[in-house]
Each structure stands twice: as structure tokens, then as C-alpha cells.
Design a binder for these strands. Structure first.
Lengths: 225, 225
DNA sequence: ACCTGAACACCGTTCAAGT
DNA sequence: ACCTGAACACCGTTCAAGT
């Protein structure tokens, strides 16, 4: 891709490795090859550098994990304030932005489950959501619980989708695989499951399913306000 | 030798190792020591057996993971049919049973995120939930989406709680830690977050928080039926 | 200060061998 | 058939050494 021949994999000259470059390669590696392939050795190789060079910029692998998560969570693009006609519209937009980030980067999801959050990642989103909930008339306690419930559902839905996509080494998409699996169950024991196999398969469609649940959750949380 | 001295760690006699014993030790190890300590070598040691003995009963570690997940998911105790006064009551009970299982065995949660579901685990719960949703008047598509949303929220909430408990090597409980962290944020940028720090910390209380969100979700899903 | 290669203590799993 | 110990190809990280 470069203009130079580079007959031999040239070593990166000094001082060109830095935290930013390491994090970029880490995100690439995670999104492209998955968490299992996210290895210090693979990361260094991708950077064209000895394995231990990375340790000059990060104390340990866990520190890279934290930094990657922080970096990606900070990337959530907040819809402009007042973009929705109602607080509820704006809540939907915010939650969908978080879902989209998690769905686009299954690795972040994995990082969330592997290591708890330390820093103030995602605080901007939380702040906005809390403001909208209070603005909708919820009291302090209800707003806090609603915010937590929205994040819990969002993480769960994203995880659900990522898990379905995980085994896409197979030809079939997760929906069809799930449909055939359910349809093959004994109909006497699981009549509804067998009967609703197509509908259950259709509910594995990521964003539309997320929005269905999100709307229900928002309705329940904002009921009476 | 008498029947009991055992001056030297005696080797388990032949044919006493079987799949059940391996799975029991695996659950113990996972719940007690966490996923990182769940090692083939540690598992064998706990069974008083050479590392490779386990491979006589399971092809690989992944197969153990699948079997553990299957075993625990089958353990979900289904409330007796018709125990609730309304379908909604019964739905709550079922979902809470799933949440309790996941919260009690954080390892299952990890196993769920690490490997996708293959067999027909948890089908009994799904069947019951679908029946109740249809009984409540939801159409086929709405029932399938509602069932998926309920499971997504349940997994997300359980994961959220488990993640908070993960670092309990520290003295403070996750609530206080989160409160102090939020309270320490710059109040100009995050006024609501700082203000609601105590309420947000209180929302990390596991089951009560789960039930709050569950009620809202059920209200939204069953609205108009 | 930044980067290297060898080495250490792990890991899952293969394999030939024992009973 | 069931179990063993050595060995292989990995992993994260320490360490002494190079520039």
C-alpha cells in the first residue's frame, strides 16, 4: 500500500510507538479477530514491534483493556440537545446511540463483562439521560432506577445480539439456525415454542428488537408522567 | 493400612470419576474461584486426579462449559402453573427465577457470554413465558418480541449486578464505591450525576432494581391487553 | 526513555504409555 | 476403558541488556 518497496519488514523507527497507536491497533484487532485473538504478541506483531515494546506504554494488558473501553465509550455520539420533539424521543435517541456503539463493537461488550468500569466512562450519556428523566417529571429515585434499567436493558440486548452473531462461521444466520432448532423440539412438550419458531427467529434482528423492548420499557418507566 | 489413615493423599480408585462428578467440581470451582481460576489443571486437582483424567469424560474444556451451562439452566425452578393470580404475576415470578439463577451463579453468566447456546437449554422457561404472553392477549409476533425483550433485560440486569460485585476484593460495596466516584465528578459538567449520586448508588441493589425495571417492561409490553 | 530477546510460570491439549 | 506424565504450542509478564 505504501510507495516504497520495503523488501524486508522494516522495524518501526524509534519513538513512533505511542499509546494512541497501541489503542488503535487494539481496537482493530478486537473488532476484526475477536477477544480470543487479542494477544499481546498479536498486538505487537500488528504494530511491527517486539512484544515487550507495548509494555513501555502500558503497564499490563488490563490497562489496555480499560483504555480501549474508555476510548470507545467516549466515542458515543450524543444527539444534539433538544433534537427530539419530546424528552421521550430524545431518550430513545440516546439509548439507541449506546446500543449502536455496543452492537458495532462487540469487543467493547466483552471488555465490559471482563473488567468492571473504573473511570468516568460514559458519564456524558448518563448525565443527559438523567436530565431528560427528571425533565419528564420523575423523582430522584425513579430517575436513577430508570437510568439504570435503560442501561441494563441496552447492555443485555447488545450482548444477546453479539452472542447470536458469534458463531457466524456457519453459513446460516442466527435467525434461521434458531428457527430450525426450535422447530425441531418435541411439539408435545413445547407447543408454543415450536409454533412460534419463525416469530422467535424474527425477533433476533438486533436493532428492531431492541427498539421494540426499548419502547415498552420507556412506556413503563414514564407511565403517568 | 486400616480403613482410614490415609497418610498420603490416596489416588481416587478407578472408575469413580464420571461426568457428574466433573460437572459438580466445575460449578464449585466457577462459583467459588471465578472464571479465571477455572482451569483444567485446577479442576483435576480438585477432583484428586491427574489433569488428563478429565479428558476421558469430556472431549475439551468447551464441552464442560456447555454442560455446566446446560445443567444450571435446567435447575431454574419453575413456579407451579397458575401460582400467580394474573398472567402478569406469573410472568414476574418466572423472570425473577431466571434472574435469581444468574445472580446466584455469576459463572453461568460468564459462560453465556463466552460461548453461545447450542442445545435446548432454558426451553422450559421460554415455553412457559410464551404461553403466558399469548394468554395475556399478545399476538404471535408481539409475544416473541416480548419474550426476547424479557430475557435480554434479565441477562443485562444480572450481568450489571455481577460486574459490580466482581471487584469486591475492596472493602467498600459497589454502591458506596459508585457513589463516591460519581460525587467526585465536576458538578459543572455533570450536575445531575453529582446530585443523584446517592440515588444511583442505591439503584445498584440487584433484585429490587431488577424488579423495578421488570415491572416497567411488563407494563409496556402488556399495555392495552 | 524506549525497545529487544531470553526466560519463567502458566494455559489447553496431543500423545505414547501404563493398568 | 480409564488414567497417567511428558511434551508441545501457546499465553502474560519479568528481567537484564541494548540503543
Amino acid at each position: 500500500m505504501t510507495n516504497r518497496p520495503e523488501p524486508i519488514r522494516r522495524r518501526v523507527p524509534r519513538n513512533t510507538l505511542n499509546r494512541e497507536r497501541v489503542l488503535g491497533a487494539a481496537v482493530d484487532l478486537l473488532d476484526h479477530a475477536g477477544p480470543d485473538a487479542f494477544t499481546m504478541r498479536a498486538l505487537a506483531q500488528r504494530l511491527g514491534v517486539g512484544t515487550m515494546a507495548v509494555y513501555s506504554h502500558f503497564k499490563a494488558k488490563d490497562e489496555i483493556i480499560d483504555a480501549v473501553r474508555e476510548r470507545l465509550l467516549a466515542e458515543v455520539e450524543l444527539p444534539t440537545v433538544g433534537s427530539g420533539r419530546t424528552p421521550r424521543d430524545e431518550l430513545r435517541e440516546l439509548c439507541r446511540a449506546v446500543y449502536r456503539l455496543l452492537a458495532d463493537h462487540p469487543s467493547v461488550l466483552h471488555l465490559l463483562t471482563v473488567r468492571p468500569v473504573h473511570g468516568d466512562e460514559g458519564t456524558a450519556v448518563v448525565e443527559r439521560i438523567l436530565g431528560l428523566l427528571l425533565g419528564a417529571g420523575l423523582d430522584r429515585s425513579a430517575a436513577a432506577r430508570a437510568q439504570t434499567a435503560l442501561m441494563q436493558y441496552t447492555v443485555g440486548a447488545a450482548l444477546w445480539t453479539a452472542r447470536g452473531r458469534q458463531r457466524s462461521g456457519d453459513q446460516e444466520d442466527p435467525g434461521t439456525r434458531l428457527r430450525t432448532r426450535f422447530a425441531a423440539l418435541p411439539a408435545e412438550r413445547y407447543p408454543h415454542l415450536v409454533d412460534l419458531a419463525p416469530e422467535l427467529a424474527a425477533a433476533q434482528d438486533g436493532l428492531p428488537q431492541y427498539e421494540h423492548g426499548l419502547d415498552a420499557l420507556l412506556s413503563g418507566l414514564l407511565a403517568g408522567h
